[in-house]
């Protein structure tokens, strides 16, 4: 099986050496298969979000190696790490982390601002994504005026604008009702069909009980309890 991401003995310690030191995850070795939907399952505090952040190059491990597309990124300088993050990953955060005061259009295009992509190409890409996610009519609306489900779709659009190979979602249904959660899963499966690798950290059975989930990594107390390729 071709792994897009692989970790070897990854640990993450917060506040190392201080009285409030926390070992969030310890010696985690996993593989994320390319083009599949993988779920990190586990209760709150099990280390799912930390592991998601580590494989998405959002933070560095205290120990261990993380291979993205075969390259060890754990020790990469910040500049190169940003490059990997920009080109490989799209993030959907638990609280969406949209920038208030900006419109849907501006939030979605934000990842492309520092790039050299031509403005017309940016607009075209943005229009296509908004169309796919049924957000075209909301393009000029400020994000704080949108419903939770709409905000999440904006977050998905922003994650897709860089055309990343991997979409990472942290507790994506935590603030959604069942209907909106189903809508989210429909979008995710469409993305997966389009060839994206999807990694979701969740403790919502609505997600990990779905038949189309390819791989479940169960976590508890910062360690992998069980890996279950389905």
């Amino acid at each position: 099986m071709d792994a897009v991401i692989r970790t070897e003995g990854v640990s993450k310690v917060f506040n190392a050496g201080l009285a409030d030191e926390v070992r969030a995850i310890a010696a985690v070795s996993i593989e994320i298969p390319r083009g599949r939907i993988t779920v990190f399952k586990g209760p709150s505090g099990s280390g799912k979000t930390t592991l998601l952040g580590l494989i998405g190059c959002m933070s560095r491990p205290t120990e261990g190696k993380i291979f993205v597309e075969g390259k060890d990124v754990a020790k990469l300088p910040e500049r190169f790490l940003t490059n990997v993050r920009r080109k490989t990953f799209g993030f959907i955060f638990q609280h969406f982390n949209l920038i208030r005061g900006l419109t849907v259009r501006e939030n979605v295009m934000l990842p492309l601002y520092p790039t050299d992509i031509d403005g017309r190409q940016m607009e075209r890409r943005m229009e296509e994504i908004l169309d796919k996610l049924d957000l075209t009519a909301k393009r000029a609306v400020k994000v704080e005026k949108l419903s939770g489900g709409q905000q999440q779709r904006v977050a998905i659009a922003r994650a897709m604008i860089n055309e990343p190979a991997v979409i990472l979602a942290d507790e994506p249904t935590a603030h959604l009702d069942t209907k909106l959660s189903e809508d989210f899963l429909n979008i995710v499966t469409t993305l997966n069909i389009d060839g994206k690798t999807i990694v979701i950290a969740t403790h919502d059975p609505l997600i990990y009980d779905k038949p189309y989930i390819d791989n479940i990594i169960e976590m508890r107390d910062g360690a992998v309890k069980e890996t279950a390729p389905l």
Partner: peptide
């Protein structure tokens, strides 16, 4: 943090 997470470099 959001800008960094979505691919902005420190210099940006």
């Amino acid at each position: 943090g959001i800008l960094k997470a979505i691919g902005w470099e420190t210099s940006d």
